[in-house]
């Protein structure tokens, strides 16, 4: 735009955004080995997860034969009309299945 001249008014303007209200915390520790561990699958019933999840299972099982998977149907669709209810019930269900890790998808 044009260069300023001495006769132009100057404006001191305020920040239009606001500070973060969410304090960040550390992520959970990662696992050293998936053998003997329980991996729970969360699926939003979108974007070919019915094809993708079995492939991911196969890939991980090939490297950790002792891994156990819990199917997404045990948890419900965490995206959509019942998202909040499904999320609310998640801690108890993960505890029930003795979850060691979770795979959540699919954002596309």
């Amino acid at each position: 735009m044009t260069n300023a001249t001495s006769s132009e008014p100057q404006y001191e303007v305020l920040w239009p955004s606001t500070r973060k209200a969410v304090k960040s915390r550390a992520a959970a520790p990662r696992l050293a080995d998936l053998n003997g561990k329980v991996v729970c699958e969360l699926w939003d019933i979108l974007f070919r997860g019915d094809t993708i999840y079995p492939m991911v299972r196969e890939y991980i099982r090939a490297r950790y034969p002792g891994v156990k998977f819990i199917d997404h149907k045990e948890f419900g669709n965490f995206h959509g009309a019942r998202e909040r209810d499904v999320i609310k019930a998640l801690p108890a269900k993960l505890k029930k299945f003795k979850a060691d890790a979770v795979i959540a998808g699919i954002g596309a």
Partner: peptide
């Protein structure tokens, strides 16, 4: 799914999310 993954992480369980 990142919101669900965050809930899981806060429970002390590692999560990995599928994103295009």
């Amino acid at each position: 799914m990142l919101r669900a993954a965050a809930v899981v992480e806060k429970l002390g369980i590692p999560a990995a999310s599928i994103i295009s």
